[in-house]
Design a protein around this nucleic acid. Sequence first.
DNA 1: GCCGTTTTCGGCCCGACTGTTTTCAGTCG
Length: 571
Amino acid sequence: MKNKEVANLLYTIADLLDIRGEIPFKTRAYRTAAQTIENLDEDIEILAKEGKLETLPGVGKAIAKKITEYIETGSLTFFEKLKQEIPEGIIELLEIPGLGPKKVAALYNKLGIKTVEELKKACEEGKLRGLDGFGEITERNILRGIQLKEKTQGRFLLNLAYENGSRYVEYMKQLPYINKISIAGSLRRMKETIGDIDILVSSDKPEEVMNHFVAYPEVKQVLLKGRTKTSVILEDGIQVDLRVVEEKSFGAALQYFTGSKDHNIALRGIAIKKGYKLSEYGLFEKDTDRYVTGETEEEVYRTLGLSYIPPELRENRGEIEASLNNSLPNLVTYEDIKGDLHVHSKWSDGLNTIEEIAIKAKELGYEYIGIADHSQSLKIAKGLSEERILSKIEEIKKLNGEIEGIHILCGTECDIKQDGTLDYPNAILKKFDFVVAGIHMGFKMTREEATKRITTAMDNEYVNIIAHPTCRLIGRREPFDLDMDEIFEKAVETNTYLEINAFPDRLDLNDIYCKRGKEMGVKFVINTDAHSITHLPYMQYGVATARRGWLEKKDILNTLPINDLKKVIRC
DNA sequence: GCCGTTTTCGGCCCGACTGTTTTCAGTCG
Ligand SMILES: Nc1nc2c(ncn2[C@H]2C[C@H](O)[C@@H](COP(=O)(O)OP(=O)(O)OP(=O)(O)O)O2)c(=O)[nH]1
Ligand SMILES: [Mg+2]
Ligand SMILES: [Mg+2]
Ligand SMILES: [Zn+2]
């Protein structure tokens, strides 16, 4: 799949055209097309060969032609020429906060600056202040920007942002002038990684709120501070943005600040067509500027003729159209979840005993908990030998007799070997209440090999669930190159459930594959892969991923009550 | 550069904060 490669090419072209000074609408067109291709679940090469590129939203004649040339010849004349005009390397300058295309163009054209190092030197030598639009403060700000960029990593895992954001909100609530407060941005949409934390407040005393906000003990640096908007950097490098509005704007502001940007632009487009103007301050009549509504999100959507759209869906991936014709899914909720079917105990590499896990699961309100320890080949993870399985089954039998109010199921997370066969023979597999199968080593495979390995495992009659199907680790390991459509077809054919692994660095399957899989009839299960009882609450991130993938209660195995579950997994 | 059940041309979201701009451009959300 060259989707990512083609998307990156288009993003790069957009950046270079911005620096060249093209009108923003043109560069936005390139970015829209890039985004479409990045999120595409089909292979761009196949679409190009079939001449279907222009069916993609945001891809027209000009961009389709460029993609076709790039795929057929491996290079793009337009891009090569562009790079001669503007060196590709200067794009890294755009990553410095405070530097945009206009300033970067000036630095390159007037001072010949192409790298961060050259820029640093020029700032230190005071060479920028002579340029139009630059001054001494600009030089200092750029040096700070470079420092900031060097120190902070890119995006943060969802759980880390969630915990930080919750603490900040609790701190903010100490101030009596806070009327309403909400997390917004990608964190409210529960995106898999978070660029920064966005918080919205309604208050009649914005100055007091801002002062309280910047006085938070973990604040390292105040980036900007105004009457309605303030941004800070925390000690651990995460940025937090605060917006403060009046009560009558809270809903419109929450809508704005929750995003996504693309969702906002699309919604504002609808507002225009209906004779309104939508901003963070409310919905207004376009001609008279008369305030129409804005206190709640529901009112804003309703007045625009839309049913309420849950934050997780606001990515401009069809949710606005679905809302307009009342066909939004009825999303699965955390309360729908009746149990967790992928938990490790002390029997393999987990931290807790089965008893401790069962008690915690009961506390969480579950009906059942599935202990799925590693299989024999995973020696470093203390994978269970065939003899130890029998003892474990005995222990669970005993615990089920002792502990009221929770059903403990005995499963395994059985390794899928290179050839797609399983790490236990069928005679052993049939002893488990359920079988989760997953890949844990031998990650170097071609697309065909990886796909075959998983589909072969699904053909085994005892396999109920495929764990973390793409095996990605966010920020550390790329997902397998897989023919997902083939995997989905096989899952439907063999009645195998695909896991939404809720562990924050996995979230695998991701939201996009959930949506695509559902369209093909796939069923899912949301599991935490907990290695400690402190991981069991990660379930919420799995549910969020399912919701972002448009999934409903009926799509998820572990929303079933215990008796129905037992029928489905035949135990 | 893309798009169209009002349009094949003329729109394309709208506003906050900062700095050197003496009246607003650039960047960011
Ligand atoms: N209307 C409009 N809203 C925007 C724009 N840029 C950002 N927003 C809104 C929607 C975003 O979700 C929200 C917060 O901005 P962020 O830059 O923090 O983006 P977001 O939180 O979605 O993603 P992140 O994980 O932080 O990169 O502000 C824009 O250009 N126009
Ligand atoms: Mg954000
Ligand atoms: Mg933000
Ligand atoms: Zn596991």
